[in-house]
Design a protein around this nucleic acid. Structure first.
Lengths: 353, 353
DNA sequence: CTGTTAGCGCTTTCAT
DNA sequence: ATGAAAGCGCTAACAG
């Protein structure tokens, strides 16, 4: 009585077409060695009935193994890229019975030479797919061109660049996340008329598309609804901390009326810790769920964190390869991650689910 | 060079133990008919090596089919339970190669007799698992006791009740979502001193645990941080719309200083549409992503929507059964869904991902 | 109690 | 160009 609806199998198709299972398989996978007529006959039957292959059987019988590579920045524990790595590994785990292997090559995100090394190393292995964040536009475009020639599909995560043809993109709409950051800040403090906009620089730093787009979004909101509000840019050096402390002190003594602050890259806890000591009346908006950022959110030294599910992006990125290559599914090319709003009150549930 | 790491299989274990594959299979699945000694020997080897069964092969060979049932309220298009259904179907789809079947029995959430009918009907089929929202505590407890006697595992979604032993629970922490609702409302309007708290009643309506817990959370926030703020309860009838309009008019003429409003059940759009016409200065907080609520959010007649990923809850609920029964995984019993904050600015990305 | 055996549905090799 | 047949790792029925 609880009978499974009978699933149609290759053998059924073969019988209807008056051919053998092998032949059906050949047309299903375009493996050639089939005459025009038989192919047409099989295709016709395939049109009529709705065949869905048994993935278990397919995986079990298949000899082909897939090797996907991911090229990402070194992941410090608790850092942004660690979360990406978690998502990658989860995808690998889930696909392990489909003979999928994932290898990760790391680079230093402040050193483009290391990015190049990692990409070269990756390409040498002729993988079945490469997932990476497109860091420097020109360098990336060199590689995407190579991959296209080699027929290696690639997926962008984190941000995307024009002029490439990735299989898919998974990342945030950075402009909109900046826009939302502004909205949240003004919701908390509608009369704000001076905001400190922090940013980290470093001599060799690779250009982050993400950060400048968020800035644009933020400015767009201010230009639209809060024209009178002034944005004070505060460039800090990623490594010279003593100097930064001085810069920030100067900022606040020269602008005692700054009551809002934002940083578009992920290490907001640095700003939060400073503000906590000296200027705790300043409302700070931060991005990304670093462990240290979360601690600040809990203490309320960061008012809102805007997050983008890096783990999920990475997971889906790898699944895009398997869906496309193994399961022959159509892939949605542009996939914007949700822009999550985290506060003291909802952070725990977000992290645990 | 890209060789798969060799996966250990049953045959390997059998050889090491000096028994046959069949015997290993028997101990792996506790199917009896194995002597104490051989069982011990096999178990020892299993301790030493890390065996992960090939799920594809297992699924392919297994004759057992699983039938899970879900008992949920009738789903109107665009309604809350429709989203639950989507999650259920997605899980079924994904498990289809594992011979998993999902059946859904519906009931009228305003009629407990229909709930009882649906549950009875479900139990008659002796399913391998039942997923449902525990509506009326006493009725539900009758059924959970029956299921426990029959050895049928069950999963709660949406809310949970004490005194039952579900395999797992997937739902929101309702108290905290009410608490967050208050916080968001006051963030927008810190000086609020009168808030309209709407609620829907109906004669035969089944008691919603969810709604009262949200109310408690909301009150808790107010009691903690905004003691002077008054909450005006506004009970509305789920079906008598003309009457409701009058009630609301009265409310606002008697309390012109109400500038904030909240409804803890899902049809906030009803309130929003009313406010839009006559009192658009009132800030409204709503719950759950009904299509109509989303339309209001886009128009800004709802300031914030608080959402709980019903689709994901349902999906994971079904997966809990398969993980436990088929893949022999340990199941986390309590799973609170994230409490998502949605605004005009981030709703699109949330819906699309 | 235990080993052997016959598939599950599909892929792939080997004849033809 | 095609069919037949072996086998992927596991389960389950069958002998003993």
């Amino acid at each position: 009585m609880n009978a499974m609806p009978i699933k149609i199998k290759i053998k059924d198709i073969a019988e209807k077409a008056g051919v053998s299972a092998g032949t059906v398989d050949r047309v299903l996978h375009n493996r050639g060695n089939v005459s025009k007529e038989t192919k047409k006959k099989v295709l016709e039957i395939l049109e009529q009935i709705h065949y869905t292959p048994n993935l278990s059987a397919s995986a079990l019988a298949s000899k082909k193994t897939f090797v996907f590579y991911s090229v990402i920045p070194n992941c410090e524990p608790g850092g942004y890229w660690k979360m990406v790595e978690v998502g990658l590994r989860r995808a690998e785990q889930e696909l392990s019975d489909f003979k999928v292997l994932l290898k990760i090559n790391y680079f230093d995100q402040y050193d483009s030479a290391s990015f190049i090394r990692a990409m070269d190393e990756t390409l040498k292995n002729a993988p079945d797919g490469i997932l990476f964040p497109p860091f420097q536009k020109q360098i990336t475009l060199d590689y995407t061109r190579q991959m296209e020639e080699l027929g290696i599909p690639y997926v962008f995560i984190d941000s995307k660049i024009e002029g490439a043809r990735p299989l898919a993109y998974y990342g945030q709409d950075s402009f909109q996340s900046g826009y939302l950051g502004a909205k949240l800040l003004f919701t908390q403090k509608p009369d704000l008329h001076k905001i400190a906009v922090f940013s980290f620089f470093h001599s060799g730093e690779m250009h982050s598309n993400q950060v400048s787009l968020r800035m644009e979004g933020f400015q767009s909101y201010v230009g639209k609804f809060k024209k009178d509000c002034e944005l004070v840019r505060v460039p800090l050096d990623a490594y010279e901390w003593d100097q930064n402390e001085r810069i920030m002190e100067n900022l606040f003594s020269e602008n005692p009326d700054v009551e809002g602050a934002v940083l578009f890259s992920s290490r907001s806890y640095v700003i939060a810790d400073f503000l906590e000591k000296h200027h705790h009346h300043v409302t700070l908006i931060g991005y990304d769920l670093l462990e240290k950022n979360v601690a600040c959110l809990r203490k309320n030294t960061i008012a809102y964190l805007i997050a983008q599910r890096p783990e999920e992006q990475a997971y889906r990125g790898i699944k895009a390869f398997s869906d496309s290559l193994i399961f022959k599914k159509q892939i949605q090319p542009i996939n914007f991650a949700p822009i999550d709003i985290l506060t003291q009150e909802n952070i725990d549930f977000y992290l645990k689910f």
